[in-house]
């Protein structure tokens, strides 16, 4: 399946981009994160992140669909 990933903050720095389109066999955010974390050497374990699909928070075992927009959200620091 093909996913559009958006990256923010330190994840964007590590990935070297704010978004990428990625072909992947991963069917859940958990598997997709393992793949991209290894590819980009992300400094976070999945349990420090939240994940959003198509603009809404989802669980790590959410079933992804082709063309989904997936965002792994590093710990936030607004305010």
């Amino acid at each position: 399946m093909t996913y559009r990933l958006l990256y923010f903050a330190s994840l964007a720095d590590r990935a070297g981009c704010a978004e990428e389109v990625r072909d992947s066999a991963a069917g859940t955010p958990r598997d997709l994160y393992a793949e991209v974390a290894a590819a980009h050497r992300f400094p976070f374990a999945a349990d420090r992140l939240r994940v959003a699909v198509n603009g809404a928070f989802v669980a790590w075992d959410h079933a992804l669909s082709d063309r989904d927009e997936v965002v792994f959200l590093p710990p936030v620091s607004g305010g």
């Binding site: 923010f8 903050a9 330190s10 959003a52 959200l73 590093p74 936030v76 620091s77 607004g78 305010g79």
Partner: peptide, 12 residues
């Protein structure tokens, strides 16, 4: 303000 700092996806 506590909830915004904890939950809203904004980074500094």
């Amino acid at each position: 303000i506590d909830e915004v700092k904890r939950r809203v996806p904004i980074w500094k």
